[in-house]
Amino acid sequence: MTLNQSVTLEPHKSGFPWKKVIPYILIAPTVIYYIIFWIRPVLTSIIQSFTPEIGTGFTVENYSRIFNDPVFWQAVVNTGIFVIISVTLEFVVAFGLALIINKKFKGSSLLLAIALIPMALPPVAVGAMWSSGFATYGWLNSLLMSMGLIGEGEKILFLAGSDFQSLMLIIIIDAWQVIPFMMTILLAGLQGIPKESIEAGYVFGGTRFKVLRKITMPMLKPSIQTALILRIISAIQVWLIIVLIFGFRRIPVLLEEVVFFQEQVQNEYKLALAYSVIVALVVSVVAVFYLKVSGAFKGDEEQ
């Protein structure tokens, strides 16, 4: 046999197309898990929310009761205010802190460690801590008194303010806990920006503000998006801290109503389900809307 002899190359044949099937086999457990533990309960809740509390059959009674309840609208407004103010406040403070800690001055890592403490606390502990703090005979008033800022008869009634003031109080407590979380995401993003990119901004005529606005922030956009979307979603779902400090139905918010109807009231299970569906819908709509507006989807097309 000479080397020049031509050889017909036949495609390698095998009985079963394993190459095509294996990916589906590999992904199957996840899909099955997803269907059983995610899609099925979600669908069930949606369907159940359209049935009466007792008996069967289709009804929109649950939804019409919710939409006619003034507390629901109060909850929508409260949640809206909470989301807008708390996310804005938390982002601004967290971004500022991230910029400061990113400077790597002496003791910046110590500051980072201290700043992260609130993140490690569970919400229940935070609620307990601050509700004891804001009580009339709580530690905050004692502290202010011992510092001589207020007198014996001037104890501040933190928890007795107007609804709006109470909401602000909640926002501050929530910010106290959430800022470290946002700061961590932003700080990680900042550390991923090459130093020379920022320096180039200064060399080519940028003031501190211009460089921040035109270079640092656009380059940080993926981190900002992540931080904001996670935060917006969890802000829509706030309830535990409010309940721990003020109890149910003092400052109603959306998710608090779900828990209220599920746990505090007898025989309102279907109503609670309808509420859950509404909250889920609100979260999805807001999230998609935000991602659309911020251009997160567009990013992929440019690649």
Binding site: P194, E196, S197, A200, G201, V203, F204, I215, P218, M219
Partner: peptide, 12 residues
């Protein structure tokens, strides 16, 4: 003005 080692062109 300056040319950097890593070029430092802005990706966005």
């Amino acid at each position: 003005s300056m040319v950097f080692q890593s070029y430092a062109v802005w990706p966005h």
